[in-house]
Amino acid sequence: HNLLHLFSATRKNEVCSIRSKFPNKLPVIVERYIREKTLPLLDKTKFLVPFELTLGQFLCLLRNKIELDSSQSLFLLVADKTMSCMSSSMGDVYSRYRDADGFLYITYASQEMFGAPQPAARPPC
């Protein structure tokens, strides 16, 4: 339990440092879905994202980083919820779903994880 608390405190300090250096950027951690088999791991998991960037634009950015071809789907899960509103700003998503440690956690997968409808899975990049 102490180790978990220490880890959380370290992340909180990291967020404070990031937010003071980059007040107009949001700290986001992106991880591959635990049972994902086809998509590669990202070479980095921490991102600083502008408030006004939309979730759809962020999805496009991730597609480019993962180097997906246009026929492959990419789904995002924010704070364990499937996101369908790709026009939401990252600032809005962050304010609603950020973790207690200050990071916004996003999971990616090649297919729907929980069967919720997601019509905006592939916005035009």
Score class of each variant (00 low, 15 high):
Leu104Asn: 06
Phe114Val: 10
Ala116Tyr: 07
Lys37Phe: 02
Pro23Trp: 08
Phe22Ala: 10
Pro27Met: 10
Pro117Ile: 08
Phe58His: 05
Asp43Met: 04
Asp43Ser: 09
Phe47Asp: 05
Asp43Asn: 10
Met113Thr: 11
Tyr105Val: 01
Ser73Tyr: 07
Pro124Gly: 09
Leu74Pro: 03
Pro119Gln: 07
Arg63Val: 06
Phe75Ser: 03
Ser88Phe: 10
Tyr97Gln: 12
Leu59Cys: 14
Ala100Pro: 08
Glu67Ile: 03
Asp101Glu: 11
Arg96Phe: 09
Thr82Asn: 09
Leu26Glu: 04
Tyr94Met: 04
Ser95Met: 13
Thr82Tyr: 02
Thr54Met: 03
Val15Trp: 02
Asn2Thr: 10
Leu55Gly: 01
Ile18Met: 13
Ser95Tyr: 14
Gln111Cys: 14
Lys81His: 15
Met86Lys: 09
Tyr108Pro: 03
Lys37Val: 14
Gln118Met: 14
Phe103Cys: 05
Phe47Ser: 04
Thr54Arg: 03
Arg11Cys: 13
Arg63Pro: 06
Leu77Arg: 07
Leu104Ser: 03
Arg98Trp: 12
Val78Ile: 13
Leu61Ala: 05
Val78Glu: 05
Ser70Arg: 11
Thr38Asn: 10
Ala116Leu: 14
Leu77Glu: 11
His5Val: 11
Tyr108Asp: 04
Leu76Thr: 04
Lys25Ser: 06
Ser73Glu: 15
Ile66Arg: 08
Leu74Cys: 12
Ser110Tyr: 00
Gly91Trp: 00
Met86Phe: 08
Ser89Phe: 00
Gly91Phe: 00
Ile29Lys: 15
Ser8Ile: 14
Ser71Phe: 07
Phe22Cys: 10
Ala120Met: 10
Thr107Gly: 05
Ala116Trp: 05
Leu42Cys: 02
Asn13Tyr: 07
Ser95Pro: 02
Lys44Pro: 00
Ser87Phe: 04
Ala120Pro: 00
Lys37Arg: 14
Ala9Arg: 13
Met83Val: 12
Gln118Val: 15
Ser95Glu: 15
Asp80Ile: 01
Thr38Gln: 10
Pro117Leu: 12
Asp92Ala: 07
Ala79Asp: 13
Ser84Pro: 00
Ala121Ser: 10
Ser84Lys: 05
Ser71Ile: 08
Leu55Thr: 06
Leu55Trp: 01
Lys37Asn: 11
Leu39Ile: 07
Asn64Val: 04
Leu68Ile: 13
Phe22Lys: 11
Leu77Lys: 05
Val78Gly: 02
Ser84Trp: 02
Pro123Gln: 12
Thr38His: 09
Leu76Tyr: 01
Tyr105Met: 06
Phe75Gln: 03
Leu3His: 12
Thr45Asp: 09
Val15Lys: 01
Glu112Gly: 11
Tyr108Glu: 05
Leu53Lys: 14
Asn24Pro: 00
Pro40Trp: 01
Lys65Ile: 09
Ile66Thr: 07
Gly102Ser: 06
Arg63Leu: 08
Thr82Cys: 07
Ala109Lys: 00
Phe58Gly: 06
Tyr33Asn: 12
Lys44Cys: 06
Pro123Val: 08
Asn24Asp: 12
Thr10Gly: 10
Leu41Trp: 06
Phe114Met: 12
Ser17Met: 08
Met90Trp: 00
Phe51Arg: 11
Ser87Met: 05
Glu112Cys: 15
Leu6Ala: 14
Asp69Gln: 10
Thr107Pro: 01
Thr10Tyr: 06
Leu48Thr: 00
Glu31Leu: 11
Val93Tyr: 04
